[in-house]
C-alpha cells in the first residue's frame, strides 16, 4: 500500500483529496498545517505528499524546504495543490523541491495525472515518455 500525506488547512479539500487517493489504493494521513505535517513525517515518512501553499503556522513552501532538509526528506514525491496559480509561485515550488504542481480548482483526472507523472500512481504499468526523454 502506498502511503500519502494530505496537507491543507481546509477540511473539505483534505477530505476531497483523501477520498480520491483512498479510492485508488493509497493509505492516507491528513495534516492541517506545515507544523503538523512535519511532525507526521518525522514519525513516518510517506511516499507522496499533497500540500497546499497558504496555511497558518507553517506554509507549504516552508514545509517543503524543511522536509527536504530532513534525513530521508528527499524520498517522498511532493505535489503542491494550491490557488497560487502564477508562474512565479510555480517556479518557486519546483525550486524548493516539489515534483509537481496542481493549480486549484482541479479534478480527479488532474490529480491522477500528476501522481502518474511523479511515478506514484498505483497500477501504473507504463513509464512516462517524459521521464525517458529527460
Amino acid at each position: 500500500m502506498t502511503t500519502a500525506l494530505v496537507v491543507d488547512d481546509s477540511r473539505v479539500v483534505r477530505g476531497f483529496i483523501s477520498k480520491i487517493l483512498e479510492s485508488i489504493g493509497f493509505v492516507v494521513q491528513q495534516a492541517e498545517n506545515g507544523v503538523l505535517a512535519k511532525a507526521a513525517c518525522e514519525k513516518s515518512m510517506p511516499e507522496v505528499i499533497i500540500v497546499d501553499w497558504n496555511m497558518p503556522e507553517m506554509n507549504g513552501l516552508e514545509f517543503v524546504e524543511a522536509l527536504r532538509a530532513m534525513p530521508n526528506g528527499h524520498e517522498p514525491k511532493v505535489v503542491f495543490c494550491t490557488t497560487e496559480n502564477d508562474i512565479k509561485h510555480i517556479m518557486k515550488a519546483i525550486e524548493s523541491g516539489a515534483d509537481e504542481y496542481i493549480m486549484k480548482p482541479f479534478d480527479r483526472a488532474i490529480l491522477e495525472t500528476k501522481l502518474d507523472q511523479v511515478g506514484i500512481l498505483p497500477h501504473s504499468v507504463e513509464t512516462s515518455a517524459l521521464a525517458a526523454i529527460g
Binding site: N85, D86, I87, I90, M91, I94, E100, Y101, I102, M103, F106, D107, A109, I110, T113, K114, Q117, S128, L130
Partner: peptide, 23 residues
Amino acid sequence: SQFEVQRGLPTPFLLRYFDQKGD
C-alpha cells in the same frame, strides 16, 4: 485553460513551453 494544461502536461513543460496570459 488551466484545466487543459494540467491534463497530461508535466509542470516543467508548462514552465518551459508556455507563457501565462491572465488565467
